[in-house]
């Protein structure tokens, strides 16, 4: 039974004279390689040159703040539950009076840590978050570690800086 009409039957008969002499085919092949010899290389010299990876690239995590500068995360733990690599851990704390400008919700994450050696950059934490607090940036990668204590990223590295806000391409 034919599933589609795209089937192409190949018939290989005797080679023609030109084919059996090899040389015409070789000259043709050499013309092809010569054409490529003069065409532009596609190489990207990686550490020096980088290419744009698209707005959905999953790079370094960031904990967003809202427009007023308050942290969005409410320490619900859904990201930690969703995380297949169990890379996220956090300690929750109740918001005190007068901290409204710091934390958006009544409960916040006092400690929020991602173990970057465990993380597989699947982006499920971003999917799970009900508060749109955690994102994987498309423009920055987690740099290479050289020391063990660089592996676990705390809030100092994760929370968004107000003077350097993250805006994904296609937002707003």
């Amino acid at each position: 039974m034919k599933l589609s009409n795209k089937t192409k039957v190949l018939e290989q008969g005797e080679m023609t004279l030109a084919e059996r002499m090899y040389l015409p085919a070789i000259v043709g092949g050499m013309a092809t390689t010569l054409k490529h010899f003069f065409s532009k290389p596609v190489t990207i010299r990686y550490p020096e040159q980088k290419r744009y990876l698209g707005p959905v690239y999953r790079g370094q995590h960031i904990l967003k703040r809202d427009e007023a500068g308050a942290e969005r995360c409410t320490a619900c733990g859904l990201c930690a539950v969703a995380c297949p690599a169990e890379a996220i851990s956090m300690v929750a704390e109740e918001r005190k009076a007068g901290e409204e400008s710091l934390y958006r919700e009544e409960k916040y994450a006092k400690v929020y840590e991602i173990n970057m050696l465990r993380c597989i950059f699947c982006g499920l934490c971003e999917e799970a978050c009900p508060k749109e607090a955690i994102f994987l940036r498309h423009d920055t990668m987690v740099p290479v570690f050289h020391q063990r204590d660089e592996v676990i990223w705390g809030k100092d590295k994760l929370v968004e800086k107000m003077d350097h806000r993250y805006l994904r391409d296609g937002w707003k």
């Binding site: 390689t33 010569l34 003069f38 290389p41």
Partner: peptide, 9 residues
């Protein structure tokens, strides 16, 4: 030459 023929550097 190999590289150029394969569009590399």
């Amino acid at each position: 030459i190999a590289a150029f023929m394969q569009d590399r550097i």
